[in-house]
Design a protein around this nucleic acid. Structure first.
Lengths: 171, 171
DNA sequence: CCTATAAAGTTTAGGCTTAAAGTAATATCC
DNA sequence: GGATATTACTTTAAGCCTAAACTTTATAGG
């Protein structure tokens, strides 16, 4: 399964590790990514098969469901961690489906406010219920202790990552 | 921050929770996804700014670096958890850049084998070194104990998810 | 006021990604 | 050996996503 022993080694490709090769962190990152992708692909597939909708659209509806007064495109962009231009297209398509409504803000003519239509809310709720069941299945072998351990470890990771982002990059 | 109390409730939208609403699992999934996306976006940005390359291309090169004899497109597709058609395009572009080589398999004329060129290997290694440093930074506030806890929790999650996938869906 | 700057969205060009349909080669079964 | 099925990969159409350039509107400073 591991090809390491078959790699021919010469003087240049040294086996001796660098003092800080961050090997465990790399393995952790890989595992985190694999795990997330695995689940994400499955959620995507079920949304498509059962509701004929994409994950980004579902996510956008989920954001709106928690904002009774609607949200601006900019807020959506921030919360969903995607670009402004991306939101423009998503909102276009969802509005075309009649699931959301887009209206200008009263005070600022640059701003657009989007909110769920009655149909959008109904549709989202039926999806959300099934989605919760799928997620429950996927995590079903984790004990409550496992879950809370994972929660706090991820919280720590998030804060560590944010600190590295703010400090390390020129922003 | 939580708008729950402002939503008007009638007899139909009950507040009393369903016996199995999987609320904690949902929160866990959300946190997992947020955390991964945060890191992934940062890695993407740094790869672009520093090496003018995309994450999918970097990932493909990483797969090839571990396979001294090259890999078939099908193997790449499986390992990277993306579709076949996706790999076709990625390989086209990377071959166009001169970073990988694509040759027909000797025994089976359906099969294409791709492998790193010397330039591809050199380029990948220089990127990989910096990438490891970034990942190290990002996880730098986690203790060794945190890391191993996260590793094992993710392993458990992965196995739980796989079981739910194989069983729950018709596959 | 009026100019400069910033902010909210949109557009554009290009890459990533998928599902589904298609092509060519191989394997299987009688 | 010839029909059938499977496998490996490619193509196509459509959606997702980004960075960068752009338009329109609002805000600040003089």
């Amino acid at each position: 399964m591991d090809d390491r022993t078959t790699i021919p080694l010469d003087a240049e490709t040294k086996v001796t590790e660098r003092p800080d090769d961050h090997k465990t962190e790399l393995r952790l990152w890989l595992r985190l990514l694999t795990c997330t992708t695995l689940i994400e692909n499955e959620v995507r597939r079920r949304l498509r098969d059962n509701f004929d909708i994409t994950l980004p659209r579902f996510d956008l509806l989920a954001q709106l469901e928690r904002a009774p007064n609607g949200m601006t495109l900019g807020e959506l962009s921030q919360r969903m961690m995607v670009s402004n231009g991306n939101i423009t297209g998503l909102v276009d398509r969802l509005a075309g489906q009649g699931l959301i409504l887009r209206r200008p803000a009263p005070n600022d003519r640059r701003v657009q406010i989007v909110s769920l239509t009655a149909e959008g809310r109904r549709f989202f709720r039926s999806m959300a219920r099934e989605n919760a069941d799928w997620i429950g299945q996927i995590f079903s072998e984790l004990s409550p202790g496992d879950i809370s351990a994972l929660m706090s470890a991820l919280a720590k990771t998030k804060s560590s990552a944010r600190k590295a982002l703010d400090g390390g990059a020129r922003r």
